[in-house]
Computed example of a mutant assay.
Amino acid sequence: MTPASATNQPLTTEQLATQHILRGESENNLRWLLEHAQYETFAAGDVLLTPERDNHTLYLILSGRVQVRLDWQGHEALTFLDVGHCVGEMSIIERKRPSAIVVTDCVCQLLLIHEEVLWSLVERSGTLARNLLYMLSSRVRKDNLVIFESRQQQAISEQHSRIDALTGLFNRRWLESSLPRLATHAQSQQQPLCVIMLDVDHFKHYNDSHGHRAGDAALAALGHDLGDNIRPCDYAVRYGGEEFIVILPDTTVSDARIIAERLRELLRNMNILDQDGKPLPPITVSMGLAELKARQTMDTLIEAADVALYRAKHAGRDRVAL
Rank of each mutant, 00 (worst) to 15 (best):
L145R: 13
W32Y: 06
V200W: 01
A4M: 05
I245N: 10
L112R: 07
E291Q: 13
R257W: 07
R139F: 03
L166Y: 01
I61L: 09
I21H: 02
Q38F: 11
F80L: 13
A308H: 01
Q38A: 15
R162P: 07
A6N: 14
T79S: 02
G316H: 03
I156Y: 11
Y239A: 03
L81K: 13
R231A: 07
R151P: 00
Q73K: 13
L48G: 02
P192C: 00
V146T: 15
A4C: 12
V320C: 04
R213Q: 15
A77H: 00
T13Y: 10
Q73F: 09
V200T: 11
N229A: 04
R95M: 07
L78P: 05
S254H: 12
D71P: 01
E242R: 08
A290N: 07
V66A: 13
Y235V: 03
L267P: 10
A129Q: 11
L280C: 03
L112A: 09
L198G: 05
V285P: 07
G24Q: 07
Q159R: 11
A260N: 01
R257T: 14
F244S: 04
G74C: 01
A312W: 01
A221G: 12
L16D: 09
L128Q: 15
R181G: 01
R23Q: 15
N144S: 11
R311M: 02
D143Q: 14
Q154T: 11
A155F: 12
A315N: 11
V195M: 03
L11K: 05
W119R: 15
G240T: 10
D250H: 02
T79Y: 03
L169S: 05
H36K: 15
R23F: 06
A321G: 08
E243S: 05
Q159I: 03
V107S: 14
H56L: 12
L267S: 12
R141V: 07
T127I: 14
F244E: 10
L132E: 01
